[in-house]
Amino acid sequence: MAAQLFFNGLVTGLLLALPALALTLVFGVLKFANFAVGSMMTLGAYAAWVANYHFKMPLVTSAVIAAVVVALTAAITNTLVFERLRDRGAIVLLVASMGVSLVIENICRFLFGNNAQGFDVLVSRPIRWMGVRINSEQIMTAAVVIVCLVVLDVVLRLTPLGRAMRAVADNAALAAVRGVERRVIATLTWMIVGGLLGLAGTLAGLDRAIDPLMGWNYQIPIFAAAILGGLGSPLGAVIGALVIGIAEEMSALIIPTNYRQAVSFTAILLLLLFRANGLLGAKAVRK
């Protein structure tokens, strides 16, 4: 039982890792908490669902389409909204991102209604390995996330784009002096973030039903994961996501499953009280 829960938690954590990374990247490079992460996941899930269900595409193609759709949406949102409010401080951007979240969620609701939808995939028999049931969706989730993490790590550490992103995150003015265009980097960051969220939405749609509130329900665990790792730290976000995922699933052993969602909230509270910089240490959390 415990082993099964631990394994499920590991997969949930991997699933959370992508949006947590998306949140932390925006926070690191653009210095505000993007409350539209959840709704962008929802959008990704619906984009993949339309491709898969209406156009009968295989799931892999649908996931790629979802990533592209959300990446473009994120870049457009940046140009239309966030870039215009850039100088107005973190709180204004935060409230604006909440507005964006409301818009995206309700466009999905307008187009697809409140009913839960699911992908058109064959249900396969789970594999048993050392007493743990593993289903094919879980294998797929783990594989996709791990590939994403490796690619992202390479991009951030080794490519000129990654170097430029880290430079803007460290000191935007200094980066500008060295000829790094903040605007271009911001747009590219949003496209990467959108791609991650589109994939995450597709994976989340495999895990549970797709409805307009799907992403919103992930919002608190995502923030918990990113805060746990220290906002702005990509590696921290991944570790934080694994810890939160495992804690959420394992909590079924001690508290009623109805209160699973409260686990992340409690984790956030405890962290802010006792280790406000996150596990790997972020900058200036306290005022």
Binding site: F27, F32, A33, F35, A90, I91, L94, Q219, I220, F223, I227, L231, Q261, A262, S264, F265, I268, L269, L272, L273, A276, A284, V285, R286, K287
Partner: peptide, 20 residues
């Protein structure tokens, strides 16, 4: 609990409160 912290954190703590 949360007000000494930066506004980003207060925002998520209050959302969490609403959900709880």
């Amino acid at each position: 609990l949360s007000i000494r912290l930066e506004e980003n954190y207060l925002a998520i703590v209050t959302i969490g409160f609403g959900e709880v």
